[in-house]
Nucleic acid binder design. Structure first.
Length: 480
RNA sequence: GUCCCCGUCGUCUAGCCCGGUCCAGGACACCUCCCUUUCACGGAGGUAACCAGGGUUCGAAUCCCUGCGGGGACGCCA
């Protein structure tokens, strides 16, 4: 059996988004699972849509996600080039070939004309397709007209049996030929359209499996016609369900922040993202037994296209965070330090201890920045919940008493963690407070917020003078 | 509008192909309790779904039909 080959073929028109990344991931996992090769091809035929720098960005993001390719524009391979703009001569040669094999003709209809045709068809409740105006021009007529008028090449779709594919995800799908219409394969600019270019490249680069989004499904039938005309081997298709936004809308348009780049900047881990993405539209089976946490290698072992869903999935940010947290917990302090952007690099021993304190409830690397807010003096102006807590009688009393207790206790025992704890305890006994009522005033006084790291160890890091100063400041605020 | 596809908790899903073991299992989120004289972490529970209606069958989430709902495509975009 020949080795499987599959590919990810983005166009360099923007950032790598979650939807694209999921497609790339599934193709990658399929290649890993079958011991095949994963190829990267940049589809940059439409010069107008190319965004400078986006190819570099996409490559970076894929590498960061650890979706490494075996062949691609940056590393070459036996069936290159891997950038479509460098393959133009191939498409031109294939256009000449297809002219001999099947009916392909020049179409001189202007975009305005075509637009009108579509509107008319739409109002007549008919299938919207090319009306065939240029189909019956003679060779002589066409040649003459071509001297003065721009034209595209269309491939004629003759009557016949429905075009069918066996899709691994969707099963047998077929389409009547009369709804297809004669379609454009070469633009008037002399550049092939996606349909043609993509089919040619997949065949010539010997892809055994084409794994892509469901939005390509209806194009597939036209591509099959191209393969048949050129007597090229039709790859096995797998059309993945789309990913929708949390509100049910479209992903890329509504949630523009969901590029891989931005998730990285928000402190998400590649293994967290790939784990989450793999579970969007695919499941390894009984997760009650296997759990849901997988690294890339485990995903590769388990992955199976036959288990991919047909229906679309909605993106869930909470679950992404959760899974990311699971992977973050696996990292030790040094690994976190490695990941942390430069502003945290100058770690003192105190900072390291502080990081340990916040690590457990951090879901992303950036959550670790909470440390900063705890190491800086709190401000109560922004936080209503904190204000509410400090403005109670109990808080006032507890803080007043706590401060004087703390002052004397610190004299007897300079270890903050002990003196503070004992102070809070005796305040609790004296006023009759316990649990939240007792601890919240002190927590808020010291950290400024209701949720945060363990109070006593944090106090140890801050030191006695700082703790006392914060308590006093909070007490002043409480009285004011 | 036309064509294609899909429809299990709010969300991701297991189960569906090979009807009974499913008054439907897991996970996120939410709620409760435990742990901790605090929040979080961790642990234990709980609320919550087979789109609707017809068939077929002793029996249907599972098979068939219709309706409804959702998505995709209909470009000289990819």
């Amino acid at each position: 059996m020949t080795q499987t080959r599959t590919r990810f073929a983005p166009s360099p028109s923007g950032f790598l988004h979650l939807g694209n990344a999921r497609t790339a991931l599934f193709a990658f996992l399929f290649a890993k699972h079958t011991g095949g090769r994963f190829i990267l091809r940049i589809e940059d035929t439409d010069l107008e849509r190319i965004v400078a720098g986006s190819e570099v960005g996409i490559l970076q993001d894929l590498k960061w996600l650890k979706l490494e390719w075996d062949e691609g524009p940056d590393r070459g391979g036996p069936l290159g080039p891997y950038r479509c703009s460098e393959r133009m001569h191939i498409y031109e040669a294939q256009l000449k070939r297809i002219q001999k094999e099947t009916r392909v003709y020049r179409c001189f209809c202007s975009p305005d004309q075509l637009d009108q045709d579509r509107k008319l068809l739409s109002s007549q409740k008919k299938v919207i397709k090319y009306v065939g105006r240029c189909l019956n021009l003679s060779e002589a007529q066409a040649t003459e007209k071509a001297k003065t008028t721009p034209y595209v090449w269309r491939m004629h779709v003759p009557e016949g049996a429905p075009v069918a594919i066996e899709d691994i995800v969707r099963g047998h799908v077929e389409m009547q030929r009369d709804v297809l219409g004669d379609f454009v394969i070469f633009r008037s600019t002399g550049v092939p359209v996606f349909l043609f270019q993509n089919a040619i490249d997949d065949a010539l680069q010997e892809m055994t499996h084409v794994i892509r989004g469901e939005d390509h499904l209806s194009n597939t039938f036209r591509q099959v016609l191209i393969y048949d005309a050129l007597k090229l081997k039709v790859p096995t298709f797998s059309h993945l369900p789309m990913i929708g936004a949390e509100d049910g809308g479209k992903l890329s348009k509504r949630l523009g922040s969901l590029s891989i780049k931005e998730l990285r900047e928000e402190g998400f881990l590649p293994q967290g993202i790939t784990n989450y993405l793999a579970l969007l539209g695919w499941s390894p089976g009984d997760t009650a037994v296997t759990g849901e946490k997988f690294n890339l290698e485990e995903l590769g072992k388990a992955f199976d296209l036959n288990r991919v869903h047909k229906g679309r999935a909605l993106f869930d940010f909470q679950k992404l965070r959760f899974l990311n947290q699971q992977h973050l917990h696996d990292l030790n302090l040094d690994q976190l330090l490695e990941l942390a952007p430069c502003k945290l690099l100058d770690w003192s021993a105190e900072w390291k201890s502080a990081i340990e304190l916040v690590k457990h409830d951090a879901a992303t690397v950036n959550d670790l920045y909470k440390v900063e807010s705890f190491l800086n003096k709190p401000s109560f102006d922004q936080n209503e919940a904190a204000q509410k807590i400090l403005k109670t009688d109990n808080a006032r009393k507890a803080l007043e008493m706590g401060i004087s207790e703390f002052k004397t206790k610190v004299h007897q025992n300079p270890a903050v963690e002990i003196s503070l704890k004992e102070s809070i305890q005796s305040v609790g006994k004296a006023i009759g407070l316990k649990g939240k009522d007792l601890f919240f005033p002190f927590r808020v006084a010291i950290t400024g917020v209701e949720a945060g790291p363990e109070l006593i160890p944090l106090a140890k890091i801050l030191g006695a003078p700082e703790v006392q100063s914060r308590l006093e400041k909070a007490f002043e605020y409480s009285k004011a």
